[in-house]
Amino acid sequence: MKKSALMLFLTLLPFMAKAQNTQNSEDGKKIDKEKLESKDYLPEIHGTIRGKYEYQTTMGAGRFEVRNARVSVTGNVLPIVAYKAEIDLSDEGSIKMLDAYARLFPAKGLTVTAGQMRVPFTIDAHRSPHQQYFANRSFIAKQVGNVRDVGITLGYTLPTDLPITIEGGLYNGSGLTNQKEWHKEVNYSAKAQFLFTKGLNLTLSIQSIQPEEIRVQSYDIGAYYESDRFHIEAEYLYKQYSDNAFKDVQAVNTFINYDLPLRKIFNKMSFLLRYDMMTDQSDAKTTDEETGALVTTDYKRQRLTGGITFSLSKAFRTDLRLNYEKYFYANSSIAKESEQDKIVLELMVRF
């Protein structure tokens, strides 16, 4: 399947190279026309390349890595029918099909999306790689709240003075690879965003999934404020397991970003500081061979990250990121090799 997906993208690339434009339609858009013109059928190509070097100070060892090599295709077959397909040709060396969905716009403010997608949950986990502020994602975005699945999502923007967007959907709950399984349980996720004033966003999310025997219920609240130079954000996630199968999980992500405009070589320089943490977590599937109880798959830890980002053009287009991550583990925690003190230098290009 991976080879077929790769061959499909390589075959389509020459035909779609002319279709790129600057319109913001990366996730599928509605075209305000009664009938499409010939040019409107042309799909668009977008992509993200992230190459980085990491030096782990504890081990005294380093590595080069292509963290992402994503390519996406979006377009329309009707004014109110859009599609998107996205593949990562190198997710730390692996090929993964990420998004594959069709999106309908049946009424003003209403969207219906069916297929494989990121479910509506949290703020930071919903950011694409080129939209990230740091070289490595937060614990909420990577370990605790990162969910892609297959299903259907409804979205609606309320026609009110206060912009409110609501999304919710039903999903398999078993991820991207086990799509042939039949499910008796209901797996859902929902998210509401409130834009109180310019630059101020409040997001509330809830998610309920059952990967195997144990149901996992998650709640998330987050907010951010943006001005001309500042971005300040805080998010909290709380996760529970049914029948007290595992202790409750808590995760926090907070950071601040300050942009300093530059005139030569770089468009701007950004100064960043982040604190994030998570308590012990189970994937709700891995159990102890003797007792059958869920085991810890991600150990409790805290992290402090400082960084500088140089932007060669508009933000999140061509960024050079330099980060230092300092980890703090409890005595009983086991630190993974990739989750220890390190220096990260990354070049990200978005096209």
Score class of each variant (00 low, 15 high):
177 T>K: 09
177 T>D: 12
177 T>A: 07
178 N>M: 05
178 N>F: 07
179 Q>W: 13
180 K>G: 01
181 E>R: 15
182 W>R: 14
182 W>A: 08
182 W>V: 02
182 W>N: 11
182 W>M: 04
182 W>T: 11
183 H>P: 04
183 H>T: 03
183 H>L: 03
183 H>Y: 15
183 H>W: 10
184 K>G: 05
184 K>E: 01
185 E>L: 08
185 E>W: 12
185 E>H: 15
185 E>G: 10
185 E>P: 02
186 V>H: 09
186 V>K: 14
187 N>C: 09
187 N>G: 11
188 Y>R: 11
188 Y>G: 01
188 Y>N: 04
188 Y>S: 06
189 S>H: 11
189 S>K: 08
190 A>C: 10
190 A>L: 13
190 A>K: 15
190 A>S: 10
190 A>Q: 13
191 K>W: 08
191 K>Y: 02
192 A>C: 11
192 A>E: 10
192 A>Q: 13
192 A>I: 14
192 A>S: 14
192 A>W: 11
193 Q>A: 05
193 Q>Y: 12
195 L>T: 09
195 L>P: 00
196 F>T: 13
196 F>S: 10
196 F>W: 12
196 F>N: 12
197 T>Y: 01
197 T>F: 02
198 K>T: 03
198 K>E: 02
198 K>Q: 03
198 K>N: 02
198 K>W: 01
199 G>F: 04
199 G>T: 07
199 G>S: 04
199 G>M: 04
201 N>H: 07
201 N>C: 04
202 L>A: 02
202 L>T: 06
202 L>C: 01
202 L>W: 13
203 T>Y: 10
204 L>Y: 13
204 L>E: 08
204 L>R: 09
204 L>V: 15
205 S>C: 12
205 S>L: 15
206 I>F: 09
206 I>N: 07
206 I>E: 07
206 I>Y: 12
206 I>D: 02
206 I>L: 05
207 Q>V: 00
209 I>D: 05
209 I>A: 02
210 Q>N: 13
210 Q>Y: 05
210 Q>P: 02
211 P>Q: 13
212 E>N: 07
212 E>C: 06
212 E>K: 02
212 E>W: 03
212 E>Y: 09
213 E>Y: 09
213 E>M: 06
213 E>Q: 06
214 I>S: 01
215 R>V: 00
215 R>E: 09
217 Q>W: 15
217 Q>N: 14
217 Q>L: 13
217 Q>V: 09
218 S>L: 03
218 S>H: 07
219 Y>T: 00
219 Y>E: 05
219 Y>L: 00
219 Y>V: 00
219 Y>I: 02
220 D>G: 04
221 I>F: 14
221 I>T: 12
222 G>D: 03
222 G>L: 03
222 G>K: 08
222 G>V: 01
224 Y>G: 07
225 Y>T: 06
225 Y>E: 07
226 E>Q: 07
226 E>A: 03
227 S>P: 06
227 S>F: 02
227 S>I: 01
228 D>N: 14
228 D>P: 10
228 D>C: 04
228 D>E: 11
228 D>F: 09
228 D>L: 12
229 R>M: 08
230 F>E: 13
230 F>L: 14
230 F>K: 11
230 F>V: 08
231 H>L: 15
231 H>M: 14
231 H>Q: 10
231 H>A: 05
231 H>G: 00
231 H>E: 15
232 I>L: 15
232 I>P: 13
233 E>P: 02
233 E>A: 01
